[in-house]
Design a protein around this nucleic acid. Structure first.
Length: 507
RNA sequence: GGUCUGGUGGCCGAGUGGCUAGGCUCAGCUCUGCAAAAGCUGCUACAGCGGUUCGAAUCCGCUCCAGACCUCCA
């Protein structure tokens, strides 16, 4: 259905060489060189399915959607793995050891897996309306309990973990003797020492820094599995280590996730991988998407300032002045770079809405653009293309790419206005620029696209109305002409008189 | 307290040692029966203080401010 699928035989683009990625491990922009081109392995931390996803989640998955789409566009054969966390982890606000999914299940009288299924479905629906492509593999934590137990055993065998009362903890001190724990997040274990807080099971740990690989389940836990150590459940960070290794290997190219996972989640992941598999760095390029804020505050589940997609579209939320379409939101997010925070506000969203409208209008105009003569131009389509690649190659700089597209918009409109010349090759070049960069890479598409019988019919109706109005206009019957325009306008149909006749748009 | 991001014009938001980001808004003009759209023009910024430099918003130092992470979170 989407036009993203790469032909298996598409060669690697010459532009692939220029791709640079901001690697949060080195804190530098590095040229992207996969382990085994043209194959690329990418792992992204997915959602915990115990509630509806909010826009902050969407932003992160959108970030990696762009990475995925661009790698595919360049001709890479990408295996994109994005997990579903369906094992409950400890709740933050209670110390009773009850897990998140179990808690929700109890509240709603549902089976834990019923909760998981419901919010997994919700997640998939949301991804679809934002045109975020599905990954190649979407593994679940509950589907990999056996592998998780196996990895824990390896870590124990290697001397980096110990058992206590049926739980297993990772020995951070021991690990740090031979490894650089904290390299990703820039933390020093001596400084971390003082910061830790009393947590459940703290007394079982040999050191407060240690983290759980396996937790013995108490009676309140609804989700638990047998293991060599106890009836229990896997630790918070383990699933990602296990599933990335299983599907991408011990060392793979790209690991992504939200900035808030950098510590401790990703740091622990690295420790687990190296603790189990040896000294190679598990990940070559770490990419962290920054947070979405609302009025300067991070959007988060615990703050309660997140919107659901439904609230966003209907505008039915106290922080929203009106509803915004998914495509508007997607475009808005792409106007900022993924590595910076982005603030969600009504004026900003409205500006994006208008800007997108203009972009889409020009794109549509482009479909019917014919070679013509004018005093200016022609547009340098080759240069636009080059700039578009340069933008994406510079750490997926979508705002810069959008600026390039707007330069194309200006050219399209100038041609349509009769100011600028263009030849057939120029038109074709602009068309493929939009097809590749706006559609394929940015994933932008006209809303409500897709011809149906209904839209064919409404087009026909509109043509009739415009013909009547043209007749009225030629008779200088302004009253009739304006009546048609005003009444249609009230219904959300906007009439625009151009040089070559009348066109219309739907709100 | 530690770690990490940022502080850019009316708003949003890129970028960068010398060359127009872009979008939105606003004003004027062109086109138009009027409008809308579109085109053209204008409004032109880089938190503060020092330093490096022929030249810094861009590099270095300090100060101030904001946010995130350090506890589940994308």
């Amino acid at each position: 259905m989407d036009s993203h699928s790469t032909p298996a035989n598409r060669p690697l683009s010459p532009f692939a060489e220029g791709l640079h990625i901001g690697n949060s491990l080195s804190r530098e922009k590095e040229r992207f060189v996969p382990y085994n081109a043209p194959y690329v392995g990418m792992y992204v931390c997915g959602p915990t399915v115990y509630s509806n996803v909010h826009l902050g989640n969407v932003r992160t998955f959108l970030t990696f959607d762009i990475v995925y789409r661009y790698l595919l566009h360049l001709g890479y054969r990408v295996r994109y793995v994005r997990n579903i966390t369906d094992v409950g982890h400890l709740t933050g606000d209670t110390d009773d050891g009850e897990d998140k999914i179990g808690k929700k299940a109890r509240l709603e009288n549902l089976e834990p897996m019923e909760v998981v299924q419901r919010y997994t479905n919700d997640f998939h629906d949301v991804m679809r309306i934002f045109r975020i492509l599905p990954p190649s593999i979407e593994p679940t934590a509950t589907g990999h309990i056996v592998e998780q137990i196996g990895m824990i055993q390896k870590i124990i065998d290697n001397g980096f973990a110990y058992e206590a009362n049926g739980s297993v903890y990772f020995d951070v001190r021991k690990y740090a003797e031979t490894h650089d724990y904290g390299a990703l997040s820039g933390r020093k274990i001596d400084e971390l020492q003082n910061q830790t807080r009393a947590l459940d099971g703290q007394d079982e740990k040999q050191d407060p820094l240690d983290f759980a690989l396996w937790k013995k389940a108490d009676s309140s836990h609804l989700m638990h599995w047998p293991s060599p150590w106890s009836e229990g459940f896997p630790g918070w960070h383990l699933e990602c280590s296990v599933m990335s290794t299983k599907y991408l290997g011990k060392s793979f190219d790209i690991h992504g996730g939200g900035m808030d996972l950098k510590f401790p989640h990703h740091e622990c992941e690295i420790a687990q991988n190296m603790g189990a598999h040896g000294p190679e760095d598990p990940v070559r390029y770490w990419i962290h998407g920054n947070m979405l804020t609302v009025n300067g505050r991070k959007m988060s589940k615990s703050e309660g300032n997140g919107f659901t997609p439904e609230e966003l579209i209907t505008g039915n939320h106290k922080l929203l002045e009106k509803g915004y379409s998914p495509m508007t939101v997607r475009f808005f997010m792409l106007q900022g770079h993924y590595a910076g925070t982005l603030d969600f506000s009504n004026p900003a969203l409205q500006a994006a809405e208008k800007g997108l409208e203009r972009l889409m209008a020009a794109w549509e105009l482009l479909q019917g653009l014919v070679p013509s003569e004018g005093t200016d131009g022609p547009p340098d389509v080759k240069a636009l293309r080059k700039r578009a690649y340069a933008a994406m190659n510079d750490d997926f700089n979508t705002p810069m790419l959008i600026a390039v597209l707007y330069d194309a918009v200006k050219a399209i409109n100038s041609v349509a206005a009769g100011h600028m010349s263009i030849d057939a090759a120029g038109v074709a070049g602009l068309q493929s620029l939009f097809e590749e960069f706006a559609n394929e890479i940015l994933g932008l598409a006209p809303e409500g696209a897709g011809a149906s019988d209904a839209s064919d019919r409404s087009d026909g109706l509109m043509e009739v109305l415009c013909a009547i109005r043209a007749e009225a206009k030629s008779n200088k019957d302004w009253a009739t002409a304006d009546l048609i325009r005003d009444r249609l306008g009230a219904m959300g149909v906007n009439i625009k008189d151009g040089k070559d006749g009348t066109s219309w748009t739907f709100d």
